[in-house]
Computed example of a mutant assay.
Amino acid sequence: MQLAAASGLMSLVLFIVAVAVLALLAGGFWMTSRVRYNEAPRPRPEEQPKLPPEGPVRELRENRESADVPVTAKGDRPLTPYELTNMDSRPSASKERPRWSRGSSGSFGGGGLGAH
């Protein structure tokens, strides 16, 4: 019976927890306002980016081919990644867009049914 009885100590603990939560929320708002005050001001309308005089930039679509990996002679040791240069790409002569196989999503785990 004594455990079930209302206790003034329990009410005091709940009140202190509620005050602590309110203090944390108020501190969060205070810190946010300090950070925002120290940030650079937002750009004015005249400082916003403008279109170039020749108009909007158009999209360029082209297929790219990667450079071939150098072939080592038979019996030579294989090249390490450090011996390979930055593999650049070049424009492709083909204008046809590469496609994935029919029924494939084109990625592993993409959720498609895959090729059947």
Rank of each mutant, 00 (worst) to 15 (best):
E39A: 15
S33T: 15
S11C: 00
R99W: 00
V17P: 09
R58Q: 10
G103H: 04
S89I: 02
S94K: 11
L51R: 07
M87G: 05
S66Y: 02
G114H: 05
L12D: 11
P45G: 04
G75M: 03
D76P: 01
R44Q: 09
V69P: 04
E62M: 14
Q2F: 02
R90S: 13
D76A: 12
H116Q: 10
V19K: 07
A23D: 09
L9C: 01
E47R: 02
I16F: 06
S66L: 05
H116P: 14
G106H: 06
A6T: 07
R42D: 14
S11Q: 09
E54R: 07
S33L: 14
E59T: 14
E96C: 00
F29H: 12
R36W: 03
E65Q: 12
G114M: 02
L79K: 12
D88Q: 13
S94Q: 09
S11P: 00
A4H: 02
Y37Q: 14
L14S: 10
P81M: 03
R58L: 11
H116V: 04
P49M: 03
R77C: 03
D76H: 07
E65I: 09
I16Y: 01
L113R: 13
R97H: 01
P43V: 08
F15Y: 02
G75P: 00
P45D: 08
R36G: 09
G28F: 08
S7I: 01
G27Y: 04
A93I: 09
G28A: 12
A5E: 12
T80Y: 00
A115I: 05
V17Q: 14
N63A: 02
I16P: 00
R64N: 01
L22M: 12
V35Y: 11
E83A: 13
H116G: 12
G106A: 09
A67T: 12
G109D: 08
V71M: 10
V71W: 03
R44E: 04
D68E: 14
D88H: 10
P52G: 05
L84D: 02
M31V: 14
L9N: 02
P49Q: 01
P70L: 10
E59M: 07
V13F: 12
N63M: 07
E39S: 14
M10N: 08
E47N: 07
K74E: 11
P45R: 02
A4D: 01
Q48M: 15
G114T: 06
E96T: 12
E96I: 10
P81N: 08
S107R: 09
G103W: 03
G103Q: 05
A23Q: 09
E39C: 15
G55S: 10
S107G: 14
P81A: 05
R77V: 06
A73E: 09
F108R: 03
L79T: 00
R90V: 15
P56N: 07
D76M: 05
H116M: 08
S66F: 05
S11F: 00
G8M: 05
L14V: 08
P56S: 13
A93M: 12
P53K: 14
L25K: 08
G112V: 03
A26E: 13
S101K: 11
G109R: 08
L113Y: 06
E59Y: 01
D76F: 03
D68S: 14
A93K: 15
D88V: 13
V69L: 15
G109C: 08
G28Q: 06
R99K: 13
E96K: 11
A18G: 13
L3D: 07
L60E: 09
